[in-house]
Design a protein around this nucleic acid. Structure first.
Length: 591
RNA sequence: GGGGGCGUAGUGUAGCGGUUAACAUGCCGGCCUGUCAAGCCGGAGAUCGCGGGUUCGAAUCCCGUCGCUCCCGCCA
């Protein structure tokens, strides 16, 4: 080893010892006859001093060293004199007085600061990702990710889970996202698909009798990117046999609770995790992934609004649409300009306008363009229903059900951001359960599975499959955290009759089903245990635990929004002549 | 596929129709033995993403294009 200690571990008790450190020169301060280096490695920073009088040759060499040069130093640990310690550094009570310095490598001036936490153009960060990853905040994120995954592995192994790898080269599936395809050289004209998730394979592992399986699985989906979506991402894929929904929820809840409390410095603010039905979540938060770190719950005021003389409200009520509101604390003094900004937010979410009411001091006193359509009693009633206090701002939405949810979800999040109600150190999980099994596909005039087509209905809702499929709930569950969906799963169908009924409802006849999922259906005929599972997204989870705004910050080598790698220059054209011919591929570029 | 934002020395920003294109930091040289975002003195460094247009004059206005990003669609 080129070092006896790392740069984060020396303390006063090491004083007097000879040590050898190696790392990067994080910062340097040339004092003339005395040179200081902040020497950095993965573990921390230690100050090194090079004294001209004591070690003139070493000092002469050290004079030329610059940021990010790689050096090895040998010296004596010295307790710093009083008044010269650095309380910001764990190693700040000591320094190493160099007696020897080896320059292991020089470094060009880096294209951006390693030693300064400054916003850098993301394209530049991506092009020099290896330098970006060298920055301490990124090292922290990547290390946190490692600790999260290590914790998960240990926890699940202790619970009797087996980690099993599944193929990356697999079969294209008709459902779901667009597949990434890989051409087969030995099967001309045929393609593998990269898995969108190991869904089928983990169910087959249950048929195979492993009972408790997990995998830290890479998944691929060729869809457009978002801050929380990359073309390849990592799931904790997990499946269990002989379990019911609550067994899966209990396991994950315990895992997540311990993870937050033992691995991070975040505060878990939901304990136990609240369980919301899908319907309840939509009603109270307008979202199936609500952020529970703040209030501003949606209140339905449809009956009250129906009695007013405000035509927008009464018209919507007559059309069967709801009128709902949120109460925003202490925004009653918002100016015309601020309110019009809010209206722009609402319109972007699909609203036609944004009605508001500022609650003022005094019984039933409000400032609002629509106050004249309310009787004094109705205003008092409204204020009571939404729980408003003087100084608060009430925002209304009235439109089709889905629009109202979308608008008030948007307003809730926009106001939380404006009021800085979100603390990134707080973690608020909740379960969303009782999802509808199907959603109606208007274009194809058929039912689509809300989750996937192996999701088992709630046992008591099975009869509804024949009478009112839209009302049937699935044994499906999502884990939401801070406004993001961080896991989704279900209890699977293991009953052939039910499975065939589902195929029928989604417009898949048995022949089609056999063609697409024949291997699954065949497998299910050989003694399939009741089973179910879940798949938390590791990137999103670590993003939230790291308090980061997007998952690129917790992925070592992410892709850009255009799904490119700016460092390596991928994707690229084939390099070898004949590469495409060998794969039986001819490229037709768009015009 | 659609909409928004950004692009100016190595980096981060300012400038938004006439400036010698500014500031900070980094870089180079000099001084300095207790600094830790070190300090002080001096210096170099920018075809203002790219292409076209409007104008007497464009970093600035317009059009196109490329890149990054946020959002909608999409993501069982």
């Amino acid at each position: 080893m080129l070092k006896t200690h790392n740069c984060g571990e020396l303390r006063v008790e090491h004083a007097g010892q000879q040590v050898t450190l190696a790392g990067w020169v994080h910062r340097w301060r040339d004092q003339g006859g005395l040179v200081f280096w902040d020497l950095r490695d993965r573990w921390g920073i230690t100050q090194v001093t090079i004294d001209q009088q004591a070690t003139p040759e070493v000092h002469a060499l050290a004079k030329d060293v610059r940021s990010e040069w790689v050096v090895q130093i040998t010296g004596i640990v010295n307790q710093r004199p009083e008044g010269m310690t650095n309380p910001d550094l764990p190693t700040g009570d000591v320094e190493v007085v160099a007696t020897d310095v080896q320059i292991l490598n020089q470094a060009k001036t880096t294209p951006f600061y390693i030693n300064k936490d400054e916003n850098v153009d993301e394209a530049l960060r991506m092009r020099y990702r290896y330098l970006d990853l060298r920055r301490p905040p990124m090292q922290h994120n990547i290390m946190l990710r490692h600790n999260v995954i290590r914790f998960i592995r240990n926890y699940l192994a202790d619970q009797g889970f087996v980690e099993i790898e599944t193929p990356i080269l697999f079969k294209t599936t008709p459902e779901g996202a667009r597949d990434y395809l890989v051409p087969s050289r030995v099967h001309p004209g045929k393609f593998f698909a990269l898995p969108q998730s190991p869904q089928q394979l983990k169910q087959l592992l249950m048929v195979a009798g492993y009972e408790r399986y997990f995998q830290i699985a890479r998944c691929f989906r060729d869809e457009d990117q978002r801050g929380d979506r990359q073309p390849e991402f990592t799931q904790l894929d997990l499946e269990m046999s002989f379990v019911e929904r609550d067994d899966v929820l209990a396991l994950i809840e315990d895992l997540m609770t311990r993870l937050v409390e033992e691995v991070t410095d975040c505060e878990l603010v939901t304990k136990p995790f609240p369980r919301l039905s899908y319907q309840d979540a939509m009603l109270r938060y307008g979202s199936d992934k609500p952020d529970l770190r703040y209030g501003m719950e949606i209140v339905d005021i449809t009956p009250l609004a129906a009695e007013t003389t405000f035509k927008v409200f009464t018209g919507n009520v007559e059309a069967g649409n709801p009128v709902r509101a949120i109460c925003v604390p202490e925004c009653g003094t918002y100016s015309r300009k601020q309110l019009s900004e809010l209206e722009e937010n609402a319109k972007a979410a699909g609203a036609k306008g944004l009605a508001w009411m500022a609650v003022e001091e005094g019984e039933g006193q409000v400032r609002s363009p629509i106050a004249k359509f309310f009787s004094p009693e109705q205003i008092t009633d409204l204020i009571a229903r939404v729980g408003a206090n003087p100084g608060d701002l009430i925002l209304f939405a009235s439109d089709a059900e889905t629009v109202v949810c979308e608008v008030l979800d948007t307003m809730r999040r926009a106001m939380a951001a404006r009021l800085e109600l979100v603390d990134p150190k707080q973690i608020a999980f909740c379960w969303i359960i009782d999802f509808p099994l199907f959603t109606w596909n208007e274009d194809e005039t058929r039912w689509d599975p809300s989750h996937h087509l192996f999701t088992s209905p709630m046992p008591e809702d099975v009869p509804l499959l024949d009478t009112d499929p839209g009302q049937a709930r699935g044994q499906q569950y999502d884990l939401a955290c801070n406004g993001y969906e961080v896991a989704g799963g279900s209890i699977r169908i293991h009953n052939r009759d039910v499975q065939e009924k589902i195929f029928g409802l989604i417009g898949l006849d048995l022949e089609d089903a056999k063609e697409r999922f024949g291997h699954m259906l065949e497998a299910f005929e050989y003694g399939t245990p009741p089973h179910g599972g879940i798949a938390p997204g590791i990137d999103r989870l670590v993003m939230l635990l790291a308090g980061q705004p997007n998952i690129r910050e917790v992925i070592a080598f992410p892709k850009t929004q255009q799904a490119a790698d700016l460092m390596a220059g991928a994707p690229s054209e084939p390099t070898e002549a004949g590469q495409l011919e060998e794969l039986h591929i001819r490229v037709v570029l768009p015009d």
